[in-house]
C-alpha cells in the first residue's frame, strides 16, 4: 500500500509539471486535509445517529430475534454443521451483525466463528469448504442500509441520499449469490 501511494503521488506530481497543472496540484496538497476533515465530520454525524439506532435494536433483543430466524438458513448453507452447536450460533451472530452494518462487532464475531468451525471438525464434514464460505460471505457486503455511502451522498448535496437503497440490496444479493456459488463449486469434494 505504501509503495502504491508513493507511486501515485510521484505520477501525479510529474504529470502536473508536464501538463502545466502544477499550481492546481500544489493547491490539492494544501487543501486535501480540509476536505478529509469535512468528510469525516459529515460521516461522523450520520454514523453516530445510526450507531444509536442500531444499539437500540441490539439492546432490545431485536437483533437476537433476527439471529434466531437466520439459523435454519445457515445450517442449510454450511453443510454438516451441528444444528445447535457453537459454530452455528457464532455464524448467525456474525451474519446478523453484518446485515445490521455493525462492522466493528461483525469482525470479532466472524473470527470467533472461523475458530469454532475448525474446532467442530469431525470426519465426513467439509471444514475447509465451510471456512471458505464464511470468509467469502464476509468479503461481500451484506449491510442492509448503506449508511456510510448515503452520508457521503448527503454531504455532497444529493436530493435523496437513500434512493440507492433498493439497488444496493439487489446488487448485494446478486454478488453474494455469485460468490457463494463460486465457492461451492471450487470447494466441491473438499
Amino acid at each position: 500500500m505504501g509503495y502504491l501511494l508513493c507511486f501515485l503521488i510521484f505520477t501525479a506530481a510529474c504529470y502536473s509539471v508536464k501538463a502545466h497543472t502544477e499550481a492546481l496540484c500544489a493547491a490539492a496538497v494544501t487543501g486535501c486535509g480540509e476536505s478529509a476533515l469535512k468528510l469525516v465530520i459529515t460521516l461522523a454525524g450520520s454514523m453516530a445517529v445510526w450507531g444509536g439506532i442500531l444499539n437500540l435494536l441490539e439492546k432490545s433483543g431485536a437483533a437476537k430475534k433476527l439471529t434466531k430466524t437466520m439459523k435454519p438458513l445457515i445450517c442449510k448453507i454450511f453443510k454438516g454443521i451441528k444444528k445447535d452447536g457453537e459454530a452455528a450460533e457464532a455464524i448467525s451472530l456474525n451474519i446478523t451483525a453484518n446485515l445490521l452494518g455493525l462492522g466493528n462487532a461483525a469482525t470479532p464475531l466472524g473470527l470467533d466463528a472461523m475458530k469454532k468451525i475448525e474446532a467442530e471438525e469431525r470426519p465426513g464434514v467439509r471444514t475447509s469448504a465451510n471456512l471458505t464460505l464464511l470468509a467469502v460471505i464476509n468479503a461481500c457486503s451484506l449491510q442492509l442500509i448503506p449508511t456510510t455511502v448515503s452520508a457521503i451522498r448527503s454531504a455532497l448535496g444529493s436530493e435523496n441520499p437513500m434512493e440507492i437503497l433498493p439497488c444496493v440490496i439487489i446488487v448485494s444479493a446478486i454478488s453474494v449469490t455469485v460468490a457463494v456459488l463460486t465457492a461451492k463449486a471450487l470447494t466441491h469434494g473438499r
Binding site: S16, G31, C32, A44
Partner: peptide
Amino acid sequence: AIDLLPTLCLLMLAVSMLRAS
C-alpha cells in the same frame, strides 16, 4: 469515524493530487 481521519487524509492527498494534475 474519527479514527478514519488519518488514513483518509493520506488517501485524499493521493486522490486530490491525481485529480488536480
